[in-house]
């Protein structure tokens, strides 16, 4: 990085859906990207902070190019981020991602089954690829 240049970080927002296995996958995939795959390039925010937090939290998607990760077709993370902060730079939906790869949906909420672990692996890899793509984009 050139001296004086601010390092761009990518924001990750998982729906975290407490009531569906796909929500657990989004949460674990985001943790894996933050902790292992792209720890120096990513930050996160709890989605409900858009309502419970301050203007600082609501400016999150303005400040960071943001990837939302949703566990179902309701797309709460993508829609709430756009509504409360700014449109996400990229959006991933776990069921779509699994369908593209011909993988079965996860069925367990708490302790992920084999399908859930595979879904987490694939989702984390897809998020990391989106992080790389966004970081490679030229910025104004």
């Amino acid at each position: 990085m050139l001296p004086g240049r601010v390092r761009v970080k990518i924001g990750l927002i998982a729906c975290s859906g407490e009531a569906l296995p796909g929500g657990t996958v989004t949460r674990l995939a985001v943790r894996r990207v933050l902790e292992a795959l792209r720890p120096d390039d990513t930050v996160t925010l709890c989605l409900p902070l858009f309502l419970a937090g301050s203007e600082r939290e609501r400016s999150f998607a303005h400040k960071f190019p943001t990837i939302t990760i949703d566990g179902c077709e309701k797309r709460c993370a993508a829609r709430a981020t756009a509504k409360c902060s700014a449109p996400p730079a990229a959006s991933l939906i776990v069921p779509d991602l699994l369908a593209e790869r011909g993988l079965p949906p996860p069925r367990e909420l708490r302790a992920l089954d084999e399908a859930g672990m595979r879904a987490t692996d694939e989702t984390a890899a897809a998020v990391a690829a989106e992080v790389d793509r966004l970081l490679a984009e030229p910025r104004a």
Partner: peptide, 28 residues
């Protein structure tokens, strides 16, 4: 999250449920 699942799946499954908090943030 883990405690909630213990309640809705094991301790009081017949009289409790959970839902996705993100739905409220969205205003569903």
């Amino acid at each position: 999250r883990e405690a909630t699942w213990l309640v809705v799946e094991q301790l009081r499954p017949a009289v409790t449920k959970t839902m996705c908090l993100a739905l409220l943030t969205l205003g569903d």
